[in-house]
Nucleic acid binder design. Structure first.
Lengths: 212, 212
DNA sequence: AAATATAATTAACACTGTTAATATTCCTAA
DNA sequence: TTAGGAATATTAACAGTGTTAATTATATTT
């Protein structure tokens, strides 16, 4: 039955081609401008064909959402080689920030938009979406390691990890949505100099260092 | 020329009626579901009439965005009566959190969505949008007052204020987009109990208290 | 009352996601 | 080899969206 396998492979191929086309459009023009019809045009198929391979637009975007988490996951994975826990924590912050700045569309899809997480809730009830949880798991672990070497000893691990994630996310989100730049350009007397993301992050690190 | 004035007033009235209809739909069904046609139907006018009073949809949403900032501003204004700076800072955090939870659609429009801030950039070049900046100004002032009574003395005021805003925004945004609840429901062993927003905020306050 | 300015409307454009019905292709069994 | 049936792809259509141009109705001024 080699023919059936080839059929299956062909089908899997087309599914991937749809995703690649979607990804290209998405990274170029963003979520809204990535329409089913444009994806179809890119792969030279009829728009409705796409619905034979993906449930709907949210399904396609969820697939990209997953790709994003895998990408962030691989960047986090490298940091497991940094043995000193606090150094690793700082490095994770830097990587998170870089990821957001270098992949703004992915970041938006992964952490800002509602659609993908609602798709998870609606269709992936149960075990799915390990990728996202893994990243948070890595943070929890690192905070615990930090506690072992004397940091944050008075704090609840989960609450502290949420603090860190909230701050990093808030900083990235405010930057990406243009709020930071807007403040810097209107409140010039207070926002002297530039790179306030870096300055804010440094200030946060300084804060954490005081908690040893 | 009393007639001309009445005409002007009538025109201003319709502008307000459009905004009220938009607000009602927006608070009920959110941004996307608030269409020009639905607004028009509500005020019993033709859809295109709306374009005689507002430039486009973003213009209407910017008006609501402003209303949101005025609402938050009034809630902040009350806190000026809290004299002890650190107490005031904590109260501001609580008010910010409550505002986000009680007015999720407003919060999204004000701090999460791109459209309104891009509308500001495109059309309100210059002096406009004091409301938003005022809220941040209040935070800067309070941080400075905290420094005067011995808090955060080693930190740059602007960077520290950005830290606080980032954390509060990140926490609210993660909550509103469903990320917090998702984590709590999948990582049950780590997220025992509930109200992790409150727990995270408490942890943050605990952190700030250590900086005296 | 006629001319003009203002206000509101209809019709249309160019899109969007999505579904039902139809056509085409391909593999299997007689 | 050919007929039947399943899988795949397409066309047509629905119900929307924001927005603009052209047209009509209303009110004001000359």
């Amino acid at each position: 039955m080699g023919i059936k396998e080839r059929k299956e492979k062909h089908k899997e191929d087309l599914r991937q081609r749809i995703l690649d086309a979607a990804k290209e459009l998405f990274l170029k023009d963003g979520y809204d401008a990535t329409s089913i019809r444009k994806i179809a045009e890119k792969i030279e198929f009829s728009p409705t064909t796409i619905y034979l391979y993906y449930k709907d637009k949210a399904d396609i975007m969820y697939a990209l959402h997953q790709e994003g988490f895998i990408l962030l996951g691989t960047q986090f994975a490298v940091l497991q080689h940094v043995h000193e826990p606090f150094e690793r924590l700082k490095a994770m912050g830097r990587v998170y920030m870089s990821f957001a700045l270098n992949n703004p569309d992915f970041y938006e899809l992964m952490f800002i938009m509602k659609e993908p997480i609602e798709f998870v809730k609606a269709h992936c009830h149960g075990e799915e979406w390990e990728e996202g949880e893994q990243a948070f798991g890595a943070l929890i672990m690192t905070v615990n390691h930090c506690k072992e070497v004397g940091y944050f000893t008075k704090f609840d691990t989960t609450a502290f990890a949420l603090n860190i994630w909230s701050l990093m996310h808030g900083l990235c989100a405010l930057k990406l949505q243009g709020h930071l730049d807007h403040m810097a350009s209107t409140k010039t007397e207070i926002f002297a100099g530039d790179d306030w993301m870096e300055k804010t992050f440094s200030s946060f690190v300084q804060m954490l260092e005081g908690l040893k």
